[in-house]
Protein backbone atom coordinates (compact mmCIF):
# COMPACT_ATOMS: atom_id res chain seq x y z
CA UNK A 1 0.00 0.00 0.00
CA UNK A 2 1.31 3.45 -0.88
CA UNK A 3 1.48 6.34 1.49
CA UNK A 4 -1.98 7.43 0.48
CA UNK A 5 -3.53 4.00 0.42
CA UNK A 6 -7.27 3.91 0.96
CA UNK A 7 -6.86 2.41 4.41
CA UNK A 8 -4.71 5.19 5.83
CA UNK A 9 -6.73 7.92 4.13
CA UNK A 10 -10.00 6.73 5.61
CA UNK A 11 -8.42 6.28 9.02
CA UNK A 12 -7.20 9.89 8.91
CA UNK A 13 -10.70 11.05 8.03
CA UNK A 14 -12.11 8.93 10.82
CA UNK A 15 -9.65 10.30 13.33
CA UNK A 16 -10.39 13.88 12.34
CA UNK A 17 -14.12 13.47 12.51
CA UNK A 18 -14.21 10.83 15.23
CA UNK A 19 -16.96 9.01 13.39
CA UNK A 20 -16.12 5.46 14.34
CA UNK A 21 -18.38 4.29 17.10
CA UNK A 22 -19.65 0.77 17.45
CA UNK A 23 -21.94 -1.00 19.89
CA UNK A 24 -20.29 -4.31 20.63
CA UNK A 25 -22.02 -7.09 22.56
CA UNK A 26 -19.99 -9.68 24.45
CA UNK A 27 -21.98 -12.85 23.95
CA UNK A 28 -21.76 -16.55 24.64
CA UNK A 29 -23.00 -19.43 26.75
CA UNK A 30 -22.90 -19.09 30.56
CA UNK A 31 -19.58 -19.34 32.39
CA UNK A 32 -17.26 -19.01 29.40
CA UNK A 33 -15.60 -15.88 30.83
CA UNK A 34 -17.51 -12.98 29.22
CA UNK A 35 -17.44 -10.77 32.31
CA UNK A 36 -13.82 -11.67 33.08
CA UNK A 37 -12.94 -10.56 29.56
CA UNK A 38 -15.09 -7.42 29.81
CA UNK A 39 -13.32 -6.54 33.07
CA UNK A 40 -9.96 -6.98 31.40
CA UNK A 41 -10.90 -4.80 28.44
CA UNK A 42 -12.20 -2.06 30.73
CA UNK A 43 -9.25 -2.32 33.07
CA UNK A 44 -6.83 -1.98 30.17
CA UNK A 45 -8.63 0.88 28.40
CA UNK A 46 -10.67 2.79 30.99
CA UNK A 47 -9.63 1.59 34.45
CA UNK A 48 -13.19 0.49 35.33
CA UNK A 49 -14.80 -2.81 36.16
CA UNK A 50 -17.81 -4.28 34.33
CA UNK A 51 -19.26 -6.72 36.82
CA UNK A 52 -18.89 -9.67 39.15
CA UNK A 53 -17.46 -13.00 38.08
CA UNK A 54 -18.30 -16.42 39.47
CA UNK A 55 -17.69 -20.10 38.89
CA UNK A 56 -21.46 -20.54 39.20
CA UNK A 57 -23.14 -20.14 35.79
CA UNK A 58 -25.58 -17.26 35.19
CA UNK A 59 -23.65 -14.85 37.38
CA UNK A 60 -24.53 -12.01 35.01
CA UNK A 61 -28.30 -11.81 34.85
CA UNK A 62 -28.72 -8.22 33.73
CA UNK A 63 -26.87 -6.79 30.73
CA UNK A 64 -24.37 -4.04 31.52
CA UNK A 65 -23.21 -1.37 29.13
CA UNK A 66 -20.04 0.69 29.35
CA UNK A 67 -20.04 3.60 26.93
CA UNK A 68 -17.15 5.22 25.08
CA UNK A 69 -14.40 2.70 25.50
CA UNK A 70 -11.61 3.66 23.12
CA UNK A 71 -9.44 0.72 22.06
CA UNK A 72 -6.28 1.48 20.13
CA UNK A 73 -4.38 -0.51 17.57
CA UNK A 74 -1.22 1.28 16.50
CA UNK A 75 -2.28 4.43 14.68
CA UNK A 76 -5.96 3.52 14.44
CA UNK A 77 -8.51 3.25 17.19
CA UNK A 78 -12.17 2.50 17.66
CA UNK A 79 -14.67 3.94 20.11
CA UNK A 80 -16.97 1.24 21.43
CA UNK A 81 -19.93 0.89 23.72
CA UNK A 82 -19.32 -2.50 25.29
CA UNK A 83 -22.23 -4.60 26.51
CA UNK A 84 -21.61 -7.56 28.82
CA UNK A 85 -24.61 -9.84 28.34
CA UNK A 86 -26.06 -12.66 30.45
CA UNK A 87 -25.02 -16.09 29.19
CA UNK A 88 -27.49 -17.59 26.72
CA UNK A 89 -28.81 -21.08 27.43
CA UNK A 90 -31.68 -23.21 26.12
CA UNK A 91 -32.36 -24.71 29.55
CA UNK A 92 -32.04 -23.58 33.13
CA UNK A 93 -32.40 -26.11 35.94
CA UNK A 94 -32.38 -24.64 39.42
CA UNK A 95 -31.47 -28.05 40.85
CA UNK A 96 -28.06 -27.76 39.22
CA UNK A 97 -27.36 -24.70 41.36
CA UNK A 98 -28.28 -26.73 44.45
CA UNK A 99 -26.59 -30.01 43.62
CA UNK A 100 -23.44 -28.77 41.93
CA UNK A 101 -22.90 -25.44 43.64
CA UNK A 102 -24.57 -25.89 47.01
CA UNK A 103 -27.04 -23.01 46.83
CA UNK A 104 -30.13 -23.25 49.01
CA UNK A 105 -33.38 -24.14 47.26
CA UNK A 106 -34.59 -20.60 47.64
CA UNK A 107 -31.39 -19.04 46.27
CA UNK A 108 -31.29 -21.55 43.44
CA UNK A 109 -34.87 -20.84 42.37
CA UNK A 110 -34.30 -17.10 42.49
CA UNK A 111 -31.11 -17.38 40.45
CA UNK A 112 -32.84 -19.61 37.88
CA UNK A 113 -35.78 -17.22 37.52
CA UNK A 114 -33.48 -14.23 37.06
CA UNK A 115 -31.35 -16.24 34.63
CA UNK A 116 -34.34 -16.86 32.35
CA UNK A 117 -34.98 -13.11 32.27
CA UNK A 118 -31.29 -12.52 31.55
CA UNK A 119 -31.37 -14.80 28.51
CA UNK A 120 -34.38 -12.92 27.16
CA UNK A 121 -32.57 -9.63 27.64
CA UNK A 122 -29.46 -10.91 25.85
CA UNK A 123 -31.48 -11.99 22.85
CA UNK A 124 -33.26 -8.63 22.75
CA UNK A 125 -29.92 -6.80 22.76
CA UNK A 126 -28.82 -8.84 19.77
CA UNK A 127 -30.97 -6.60 17.57
CA UNK A 128 -29.20 -3.48 18.77
CA UNK A 129 -25.53 -4.31 18.36
CA UNK A 130 -23.17 -3.45 15.53
CA UNK A 131 -20.96 -6.44 16.15
CA UNK A 132 -20.36 -9.31 18.57
CA UNK A 133 -17.38 -10.54 20.50
CA UNK A 134 -18.42 -14.17 20.90
CA UNK A 135 -16.67 -15.81 23.82
CA UNK A 136 -16.22 -19.58 23.88
CA UNK A 137 -14.59 -21.84 26.41
CA UNK A 138 -11.79 -23.52 24.45
CA UNK A 139 -11.85 -26.54 26.78
CA UNK A 140 -15.37 -27.33 25.57
CA UNK A 141 -17.11 -28.52 22.43
CA UNK A 142 -17.73 -25.40 20.30
CA UNK A 143 -20.57 -26.84 18.21
CA UNK A 144 -23.35 -25.88 20.57
CA UNK A 145 -26.75 -24.60 19.57
CA UNK A 146 -26.19 -21.33 21.38
CA UNK A 147 -23.01 -20.57 19.43
CA UNK A 148 -24.62 -21.59 16.15
CA UNK A 149 -27.72 -19.47 16.84
CA UNK A 150 -25.73 -16.36 17.77
CA UNK A 151 -23.46 -16.63 14.73
CA UNK A 152 -26.42 -17.33 12.45
CA UNK A 153 -28.27 -14.22 13.62
CA UNK A 154 -25.26 -12.01 12.96
CA UNK A 155 -24.58 -13.57 9.58
CA UNK A 156 -28.20 -13.02 8.63
CA UNK A 157 -27.71 -9.32 9.35
CA UNK A 158 -24.25 -9.20 7.86
CA UNK A 159 -22.64 -7.97 11.09
CA UNK A 160 -19.05 -8.71 12.14
CA UNK A 161 -18.25 -11.48 14.62
CA UNK A 162 -14.97 -11.99 16.43
CA UNK A 163 -14.55 -15.21 18.37
CA UNK A 164 -12.49 -15.19 21.56
CA UNK A 165 -11.32 -18.74 22.31
CA UNK A 166 -11.01 -18.20 26.04
CA UNK A 167 -9.37 -20.12 28.89
CA UNK A 168 -6.33 -21.16 26.86
CA UNK A 169 -4.32 -21.12 30.09
CA UNK A 170 -6.05 -24.40 30.91
CA UNK A 171 -4.25 -27.59 30.02
CA UNK A 172 -7.07 -29.23 28.11
CA UNK A 173 -7.88 -26.19 25.99
CA UNK A 174 -8.02 -26.65 22.25
CA UNK A 175 -8.35 -23.35 20.38
CA UNK A 176 -7.58 -25.16 17.11
CA UNK A 177 -10.89 -27.03 17.42
CA UNK A 178 -12.71 -23.69 17.57
CA UNK A 179 -10.83 -22.40 14.56
CA UNK A 180 -11.82 -25.37 12.45
CA UNK A 181 -15.41 -25.24 13.72
CA UNK A 182 -15.95 -21.65 12.55
CA UNK A 183 -13.56 -21.05 9.67
CA UNK A 184 -15.62 -18.12 8.35
CA UNK A 185 -14.82 -15.87 11.34
CA UNK A 186 -11.55 -14.83 13.01
CA UNK A 187 -10.80 -16.84 16.16
CA UNK A 188 -8.37 -15.36 18.69
CA UNK A 189 -7.07 -17.59 21.49
CA UNK A 190 -6.95 -15.67 24.79
CA UNK A 191 -6.92 -16.02 28.51
CA UNK A 192 -9.18 -13.43 30.08
CA UNK A 193 -7.84 -14.56 33.43
CA UNK A 194 -4.11 -14.10 32.81
CA UNK A 195 -4.35 -11.55 30.00
CA UNK A 196 -2.45 -13.79 27.62
CA UNK A 197 -2.81 -12.57 24.01
CA UNK A 198 -5.13 -9.71 25.00
CA UNK A 199 -3.14 -7.26 22.84
CA UNK A 200 -3.76 -9.42 19.81
CA UNK A 201 -7.46 -9.55 20.62
CA UNK A 202 -7.60 -5.75 20.89
CA UNK A 203 -6.01 -5.22 17.51
CA UNK A 204 -8.47 -7.67 15.96
CA UNK A 205 -11.36 -5.92 17.70
CA UNK A 206 -10.36 -2.59 16.15
CA UNK A 207 -9.98 -4.16 12.71
CA UNK A 208 -13.04 -6.35 12.77
CA UNK A 209 -15.48 -3.90 14.32
CA UNK A 210 -14.37 -0.93 12.23
CA UNK A 211 -15.86 -2.79 9.28
CA UNK A 212 -19.30 -1.38 9.08
CA UNK A 213 -20.89 -4.00 6.96
CA UNK A 214 -23.78 -3.05 4.79
CA UNK A 215 -27.02 -3.38 6.65
CA UNK A 216 -29.72 -5.02 4.69
CA UNK A 217 -32.70 -2.76 4.09
CA UNK A 218 -35.34 -2.60 6.79
Amino acid sequence: MGLFGIGSFSSIIQRIFGKKHAKIGIYGPPNVGKTTLANRILRDWTGDIMGSVSEIPHETRVAKCKKNVRVENGSSSLMMDIIDTPGIATKIDYKEFMNTFGLSREEAKKRAKEATEGVIESIRWLENVDGVLLVMDSTQDPFTQVNVTIIGNLEARNLPVLIAANKIDMEDSSPATLKSAFPQHPVIPVSALTGYNAENLYSHMVKQFSKRKRRRGR
Binding site: T90, T116, V119, I120, I123, T149, I151, G152, N153, E155
Partner: peptide, 19 residues
Protein backbone atom coordinates in the same frame (compact mmCIF):
# COMPACT_ATOMS: atom_id res chain seq x y z
CA UNK B 1 -35.49 -23.21 12.02
CA UNK B 2 -33.74 -20.14 10.74
CA UNK B 3 -31.33 -18.58 13.20
CA UNK B 4 -33.79 -15.78 13.84
CA UNK B 5 -36.48 -18.37 14.63
CA UNK B 6 -34.02 -20.25 16.84
CA UNK B 7 -33.40 -17.09 18.86
CA UNK B 8 -37.17 -16.50 19.24
CA UNK B 9 -37.64 -20.10 20.30
CA UNK B 10 -34.99 -19.73 23.02
CA UNK B 11 -36.66 -16.52 24.15
CA UNK B 12 -40.12 -18.15 24.31
CA UNK B 13 -38.69 -21.19 26.06
CA UNK B 14 -37.30 -18.95 28.78
CA UNK B 15 -40.73 -17.40 29.23
CA UNK B 16 -42.32 -20.82 29.67
CA UNK B 17 -39.85 -22.45 32.05
CA UNK B 18 -41.62 -23.84 35.10
CA UNK B 19 -39.08 -24.78 37.68
Amino acid sequence: LTSVEQASLIQQTMEKIEQ
